[in-house]
């Protein structure tokens, strides 16, 4: 489907991904205080949602670009409307790409440290914060550290291995086809 100024929109989406999250966090936190969310998991979740969206758009776009147009056209000649063609032909075919995008976004959010460092405290700390806290300046809680590190690093590694064929595409937002 032709979308006017397709390249410009794409460029804009990409550039939102380039901006450092902390720089975006400053005005967002001001906004969270205004609407009364303040610090906490809600703000963290919303922030992550906003930051991972351009990532997902770009990865999935890369996979859709790889499908020949004629598949969608063929479905439409065969009796589909645009939505049906999307659902019955396009979506099943990009499903692995969508999964890869989801996993990449998951890994990003799981690993992220700096946003959680400010937005969460105490009981709402995410794992990276808890891991970091278990190493004090003068003492190390070895048992807690070991457990926390394992729990923290295992899911990303397992997921990465699951999507290893799409990992490069995901990490480069579809710029490189692995």
């Amino acid at each position: 489907m032709d979308v006017p100024r397709k390249t410009d929109v794409g460029f804009w989406i990409l550039s939102t991904r380039m901006a450092p999250p902390l720089a975006i966090l400053i005005p967002l936190v001001g906004f969270y205080f205004t609407v009364g969310i303040g610090q906490g998991l809600v703000g963290l979740t919303v922030t992550h949602l906003l930051i991972t969206l351009p990532l997902i758009i770009w990865i999935v776009k890369g996979f859709i670009d790889e499908l020949p147009d004629s598949l969608e056209e063929s479905a439409m000649v065969d009796g589909c409307n645009r939505i049906q063609a999307l659902r019955t032909v396009v979506f099943p075919l990009v499903a692995p790409g969508v999964a890869a995008a989801a996993f990449i976004a998951f890994i990003f959010s799981w690993n992220n440290y700096v946003l959680a460092l400010y937005l969460t405290t105490g009981a709402s700390s995410t794992l990276p914060i808890a891991v970091s806290n278990s190493v004090g300046t003068y003492s190390i809680q070895w048992g807690q550290l070991g457990a926390a590190v394992i729990v923290t690093i295992l899911p990303p590694i397992v997921l990465s291995l699951l999507i290893r064929n799409y990992l490069v595409a995901g990490m480069t937002m579809g710029a490189v086809k692995g």
Binding site: T16, A23, I24, P27, G30, F31, F33, L49, L50, P54
Partner: peptide
Amino acid sequence: VLAFISIFPLVRAVWMSLHDWNLT
């Protein structure tokens, strides 16, 4: 959503940078 993540924070960040502004 993209407007919220790119235009809104950017405009607001520029606005904030032109003021004395305390986070809380």
